[in-house]
Each structure stands twice: as structure tokens, then as C-alpha cells.
Nucleic acid binder design. Structure first.
Lengths: 195, 195
DNA sequence: TTCATTATGTATCGAGTGCTACAGATAGTC
DNA sequence: GACTATCTGTAGCACTCGATACATAATGAA
């Protein structure tokens, strides 16, 4: 009934995601984006509606790929404590991997001044963070019942701390990253919390 | 011998600082800046040299005022442990204070993608962070000798963790801030580290 | 006063911004 | 082929960006 899309949407979105991830929202111009995606303005505004919406779409795509793997890494570990450790290990591997677009997680990188003005984006990020936190809390509570975590250990209090600390690590990596130092401080952090 | 400045440099820089602090580097246009400062292009480029240099100058100004008070808050506490607690309290007060330009510390807010491309800025931030960390470590070591901190407590390992966690808190506050929740997780964090 | 020096206001630069209008190309339906 | 519907390339929109050119105004030393 009508003309078909000439480009593959998923591939294109993936490329856009890598660019946004690397340079952030403000640091990525529409021209850069189009060049990377290999499409023209018309195709862009036809599928995605604006730059802002495109960013949100890319962030969702990021979550369904990279971030999804992370939560899988956590959930598939034999215990919650090991799961948290696996999360940090995954983070360090990402930092060491030269193929990673940016030194910072796209979700973490999205927590900027600009976010405050974009309600939809902020709410999405907020939701994603709390969803992951809930998964971690649930898993820890299960471990607690199984006696894998101390009776005094309180997941709903500890998890936000872990989550917040990770945000900090992503940021710190921007200014100076040294694997062994990071491993060292992560160890201090985790043992302090009883993980 | 020559014409004198018609505006007060310090006042003007202070205004610029508050604007940069509030909206970030990319989020602040030169026009906004000039309007807030109450000067023209000529005066701006005569004293500060470029927008980038202006931002760095403002960040330094921020450190000499706001951040300086913070480190004072830490150093003047009776013990290092109380000093760290005072730091977090100061942070919460800043978050609660409606007169604070931004919900995020300007130093923390400067840790963005853009920073990576600006060597001078990055090095400055790096230096400031490690300077504060060194002060904290020194103070803790003194407390340790005085028996105010456990013998097993290792300042050079713990301080980076505290520093990183604070960065994370500033970021988290951007998306959702609740004082009592923050107090709660800070308490969990600190007691875990033995502070 | 003369003069060099610096400060300021105005106008504008060229480049880049996100975005849109519009004509033409491509598809399925009749 | 005619018709409708969607896609795409090109050109350009109105605007903002950071930065600059230049004439003019103020200052103090000679």
C-alpha cells in the first residue's frame, strides 16, 4: 500500500545509540547523528520524531541490550553477594574494553542538569533505577531466608547504597581510571557492607 | 594610564558562577551569561578570554567559596569520623536549601563527557579531588594514631570510597531526592565503613 | 593638552543548531 | 495505468552559537 523503509531500523538505532552514548545528548548534533545512521533528515523525523525522542529511544535500546546483560549478570550469579561482585566486575570489564563507546554507562551519563527539564526522560531513568534496585532487593531477601546473608543484613537499605556508589564510580572513571585502584576501593566498599 | 573597569570583577564572576552552576557549561549560552553578568561582549572577552576559560575561572571561584567551606566543615570537626558526617550533613543542607543554584555540586556537575576533551579542566578537577582526599586521609591517620579510629582502619583505602559515594549521591539527587532516605542510606554506608 | 592605553557598545561574522517544506521516488491496491 | 500512501533527498528555514572588528569613550602619564 505504501513505500517501505529503505534502512534497517534496529541497526540504525543501534548506531545512534553508540554515538549518543559516546558523546552525550548535547555533544551529539543532528548532523553527526544522521551521518552515523546513514540516513537523511526526512527518514529521521519520520521514524523518530525529534532529537529528544530519539535520545530516549536510544536510551531504551541501550537498556534492552547493555544494561539488560548487566542485570542478567547479577541475577544469574549463585548468590546475591556474588551477583553484586559480578556487576562491578562487569563494569570494570566495560571500562577496560576499548570497543566500549564511552567510558561512562549511558544511563549514568544521562544523569545531567538537562535531565531535570525533561520529565519523561527523568521518570524513565528513575523507573529503571528503581526496577533494578527492586530486583536486587528481592534476590537478597531470598538469600537472607536461605541463610546466605546475615540476619542483620537489610537489603532495602543496602541496595540504594550500592546503586549510588556505582553511579559515583562511573563518574570518577571519567576523570581518572585505574583498574587496580578501582578494584581495591570496590573491595573495601563491599566488605564494609557485608557483601 | 588607561580606562578603568566599569564593573566589579568579583561580583560579576560570582553571578556567572551561579549560572554555570545552575545550568552547566553546555546549558549556559554566552548571551545568558552576559545578561546575568550585566556586561557586554567586549568586557567579557577582555577579562575572561573565552567561554571555556570563563567556566574554569568560575569553577575555581566556586571552589574558593562553596567547596572551601565544605573542607572547612570537615577539618573543624572534633574527629575525622564526625568530619565526614558533617560533610554529608552539609551536602543535605545544600540540597534542602532553596537558594542553592543547582541541585548538584558544581564540581560534581562538571564531571561530564565534555570534560574528557578539556585537559586543563579535567586536570584541575582531578587535582582538587585528590587534594581533598589527601586532607581527609591525613586527618584520619592522625585520628588513628590517637586511637580514635580502629587499628584496622585504612584511610587511604576508605577515603576514595567516601569520595566516590558522594559523587554518586550528587547524581542521584538529580533524579529523585528525599532527605530521610538519603540520611538512611548515608548512615548505612558510613557505619559499614566504620565511620 | 597630547598621547598612549585600556574599556565598552554596537554591529556583525561565519558556522552550526534543530527542524520543516516540498518535490520526487517507491510501494501496494484497484 | 490510476490512485493513494508512505518514504527519501534536497534545499533551506529561522534561529542561536561563540567570537570578533571597529569606532568611541574614559583614564592617567607626559
Amino acid at each position: 500500500m505504501a513505500r517501505t523503509l529503505e534502512f534497517d531500523y534496529d541497526t540504525t538505532l543501534d548506531r545512534a545509540t553508540r554515538l549518543f552514548w559516546k558523546s552525550g545528548y548535547a555533544g551529539t548534533s543532528l548532523r553527526d547523528l544522521l551521518k552515523e545512521m546513514g540516513i537523511g533528515e526526512s527518514s529521521f523525523y519520520n521514524t523518530l520524531k525529534s532529537k529528544k525522542r530519539a535520545y530516549l529511544e536510544c536510551l531504551k535500546h541501550y537498556n534492552e541490550t547493555v544494561a539488560r546483560k548487566r542485570s542478567k549478570v547479577f541475577l544469574e550469579a549463585p548468590t546475591a553477594a556474588l551477583g553484586v561482585r559480578a556487576l562491578f566486575k562487569n563494569m570494570l570489564e566495560s571500562l577496560d574494553n576499548p570497543d566500549t563507546p564511552s567510558v561512562i554507562c549511558m544511563m549514568a551519563g544521562s544523569l545531567t542538569h538537562e535531565v531535570l527539564d525533561e520529565a519523561e526522560l527523568r521518570e524513565y531513568i528513575e523507573g529503571q533505577i528503581s526496577t533494578l534496585q527492586d530486583k536486587m532487593i528481592a534476590r537478597m531477601n531470598a538469600d537472607k531466608r536461605d541463610g546466605l546473608l546475615a540476619a542483620g543484613f537489610e537489603p532495602q537499605l543496602v541496595v540504594p547504597v550500592v546503586s549510588t556508589y556505582m553511579q559515583g564510580l562511573w563518574r570518577m572513571a571519567l576523570v581518572s581510571y585505574d583498574r587496580s585502584r578501582f578494584e581495591q576501593q570496590i573491595e573495601v566498599f563491599l566488605t564494609g557492607l557485608g557483601l
